[in-house]
Design a protein around this nucleic acid. Sequence first.
DNA 1: AGCATACGTCAGTGTTGTTGACATTCCAAC
DNA 2: GTTGGAATGTCAACAACACTGACGTATGCT
Lengths: 167, 167
Amino acid sequence: MSDGQAYRGENLLFLTDEQLRQGIEAMFFAYRGFTADPDRILSDMAYGRAHHRAIHFINRAPGTTVNNLLHILGVTKQSLNRVLRTLIADGLVQSTVGKSDKRERHLHLTEEGKELEQTLSDAQRARMRSAFRDAGPEAVAGFRTVLEAMMDTEMQRAYTRLKESST
Amino acid sequence: MSDGQAYRGENLLFLTDEQLRQGIEAMFFAYRGFTADPDRILSDMAYGRAHHRAIHFINRAPGTTVNNLLHILGVTKQSLNRVLRTLIADGLVQSTVGKSDKRERHLHLTEEGKELEQTLSDAQRARMRSAFRDAGPEAVAGFRTVLEAMMDTEMQRAYTRLKESST
DNA sequence: AGCATACGTCAGTGTTGTTGACATTCCAAC
DNA sequence: GTTGGAATGTCAACAACACTGACGTATGCT
């Protein structure tokens, strides 16, 4: 339909509209699988996907501030606050006043919070591990490359920062 | 933490927990980018992501039944019905009673519906095309391989059926 | 002192998922 | 041929989670 089907010195058949549509649909179906296992676990509790995301990134970046977290999650503070309130009330997350800047709140998982995080990420990692193993290392490298290229630039930065923080 | 870090005849370093976590986070950030452009377009109308999905798959499989569509989308018939009702009322989707089985409704996009579908998928394809081009054909192949391995088996079947229906 | 920043909260709204109840239609057993 | 159950689709009410807007408090900075 557009310029995708042409040859330009190299084979660009992987950029046809049909290929792109298959990529779009693969992304849709795969994301459902990606969230299915944690969703199942959480539906038994009073929590949802939003709680999972908050717990994941608090675990990933302990001591992060509310402001930082809501930028990573890409939601409003009101939306995040609703989730955090329940997590703090239930004793899964601890909020401490900032040392140098007392306006800030630093977030940590409690032991109970870490347990739930482990349960959720075990389930999600199991599926990811199975997919990675089936696909092989080259496919995994390609998977990561395409996903990074698909992010918004701000999110690329956030993602890279998180990657590097764990070395 | 688990068996991922071991060597077993081949290098399995791509299966470490840290690699899996990066894959999980890449999936999270990339999916946000994936939906960002259509979401922006739809927010100006009274529609959301659910309408986009319905329009996409009705366009993909014209004449599909409500039942078939809700299996593909993975939602309840009640949830899909609310979306379809507005799309039909707004003249984007046409619902016709089944010929052989009058319980069924066959769904088609109207001209107006096709226009919106085109607008939305143009935006989404543009991002996918850019990501694919940046990543290159080998990465794209890997991307697709991993995503397929991440789907639930039912969804793999639905995905394969859709892929093959367009040849 | 004055203004900006970080956080929390209340109120209201919209999208999208859920369950429950119900009408219509088909089909197969009787 | 009637009847009972399964399948298909619709309407209504509710829950989760996002949004905007407005406001209050504490703190930091100039």
